[in-house]
Design a protein around this nucleic acid. Structure first.
Lengths: 202, 202
DNA sequence: CGTCGCATTGATATCGCTCAAATCCGGTGG
DNA sequence: CCACCGGATTTGAGCGATATCAATGCGACG
């Protein structure tokens, strides 16, 4: 662990955390964790590179983030009980596994400002993942549906006070395309458009 | 400030931070900060909603994140000296401005684990912004160029040990499209393809 | 030698973008 | 009350870029 060359972006973890860490080797393509696994560790990448990916309906993979040697990986999973992505080595890699409990403790516990702030940042990261996944979809229809499902919550209702063109910008579409897509969905009965509200049906 | 209804995602900031906070009202479309402004505050949204946006070459706006009442806004700017986005109110809004210095102090200073961990998470958020911006581009050529510029650093060199199809997944393109795009760029002399390396020229 | 995975190339289909125009709607002033 | 205006929505028509499907080349490996 000593004499390890770390890039500028590296996180110098305190020794008391690293002593609790096991290290692990991964081969190219091997998974450190899978979507749905309980979050037990945050990883410090010692060698190689890892990526966090999600698989879409058509099984295409969507890369959420990458971490190289010296960087933390999956640190935003601190906010979750289960991983939301697969963590895959893009090549031969070596990681140190820091138990999340140790990490939380080092932050001063779940009531500390530090922990709560990290949660807030991690939550934003999670939303960005959602955005990323949405923009990764090629069809306008899929983006709109993804947006409605993600933002509409249980009831499938999204309030939108802004103009249609702002929603179009949010989705990375043109005004006209968005309009036509909404019109189609409404004609299919999958959607209701009220004044400043979109309702996903069935 | 009391009796304020906050959603589940809200961040309960300690009183000593909130007492140092000024509050500010914003009208729809008004900017809390602009890209390039020095980072002085982290905002807690009291009412309304803010969005962080970047403008692309064609002046289309790219939404990076949104924060609603009760949530922190621009907390990942803690890692930066200048804002990388515009912070805009999507409607009438009210925010509490917490000085970043106070925030850093509350985290235990710039050497604390808490602060460094927050930085690590914020750094990942920054990269996700870059990804978001890239996927927001419609043309394959633009995505490739954006990737090369962002990942290639000063020298414009990107090492890529994986297969072409993995890079295609990263960029949200199909293998064939990526191949054709790279071939075109190389024919134009803007790019050199070596074994496991891409060089951006001129 | 045959097969497998990936890179490369070609042909075509499809979708969203672009430009253009009609319509709607709230606000304003006569 | 009505005519008019500006901004936004809605609709139409055509084009261009990318996805898709198909085929070939090509090196690694058993």
């Amino acid at each position: 662990m000593k004499d390890l060359l770390m890039p500028a972006a590296s996180v110098a973890l305190p020794a008391e955390l690293l002593t609790q860490a096991e290290t692990l080797r991964l081969a190219r393509g091997e998974a450190l964790f899978r979507q749905g696994d309980p979050v037990r560790y945050v990883a410090l990448v010692l060698e190689g590179e890892l990526k966090a990916v999600r698989y879409m309906l058509d099984s295409a993979e969507c890369v959420m983030l990458r971490a190289r040697a010296g960087e933390l990986f999956a640190e935003s999973s601190l906010a979750d009980s289960r991983y939301r992505c697969d963590g895959i080595a893009t090549g031969p890699a070596r990681v140190a596994l820091v138990p999340v409990e140790a990490m939380r403790a080092a932050l001063g516990g779940v009531d500390s400002l530090a922990y709560r702030l990290c949660l807030a940042v991690a939550r934003q990261a999670r939303r960005q993942c959602s955005r990323l996944e949405r923009l990764r979809l090629k069809r306008a229809r899929d983006r709109v549906l993804h947006f409605l499902v993600c933002e509409g919550g249980e009831a499938g209702i999204v309030r939108w006070s802004g103009h249609l063109s702002e929603l179009a910008a949010e989705l990375g579409l043109e005004r006209e395309t968005l309009y036509r897509t909404l019109a189609t969905l409404e004609a299919e009965g999958r959607l209701r458009r009220l004044d400043d509200e979109l309702r996903l049906l069935a």
